[in-house]
Design a protein around this nucleic acid. Structure first.
Lengths: 117, 117
DNA sequence: CACGAATATTCGAATTATCGAATATACTTA
DNA sequence: TAAGTATATTCGATAATTCGAATATTCGTG
């Protein structure tokens, strides 16, 4: 079914960014205010808000307004399951993907160096 | 872990296109030659090859060369599980997302109309 | 109502993704 | 080795993402 595939592709795209994965992980088992997410993720406020807008648009996340702040939560824990599956997948294939692994850690070190400046 | 998040984001991005989802679904329980995929998907040969290159790069799919042709298969059935989870997710939330649904079916009809021309 | 705090939106620039057309490569068979 | 078939790569145009800076909105409090 074509619309189902489009739907899946949209969900995947919503999750296709490390920051948005970090958001979903942070909301794994409790709702959080935007401010708390901002503290954890250490990115620009506007940028976080943009990423949240993307997750909201795809209904990955829902926002609940309480006075001055917004509490976000996952709409469905199934996405947590998906992330868990991918974690297994990642570790299962580490040995088979030396190249990718070393690329990843290299990129990681580069990022840390960049952050240190 | 940051590199794990990057890894997940990369996998999601690999899957963030309806054509690539269709490829993964077609390979769900058997390997297939590129030619067969081409028949099923009804897209340009070059385009299919590009999408396969993306899936190969992310190791979602592996190609086995046999003479003149290439047989593709899924590297790990976990991705099939992920797609199944999303299917459940889709149907579970249909009633809660009338707007998205109607957008989807509208887009679907538009696509069919476009194809009919 | 003015002000501050929390969050969202808009804008413009840089990067990345997507597609079809053209071309290249690899293998098979005459 | 020439021709044919299957698949991959390159190129250039267009569209979509991403980011920070600036600005807007919304709400609570004095």
């Amino acid at each position: 079914m074509e619309s189902l595939r489009r739907f899946k592709a949209d969900i995947f795209q919503a999750l296709a960014h490390p920051t948005r994965i970090a958001i979903v992980e942070a909301l794994r088992d409790r709702e959080l205010q935007t401010g708390v997410l901002l503290d954890r993720l250490q990115i620009e406020q506007a940028n976080l808000s943009q990423h949240l807008a993307i997750l909201r648009a795809r209904q990955v996340v829902v926002g609940r307004k309480a006075g001055n702040q917004v509490y976000y939560s996952l709409r469905d824990p199934v996405l947590t399951k998906v992330l868990d599956l991918l974690k297994q997948y990642f570790y299962a294939h580490l040995s088979h993907s030396r190249t990718m692994l070393s690329d990843l850690t290299k990129a990681d070190r580069a990022t840390k160096r960049a952050r240190a400046r």
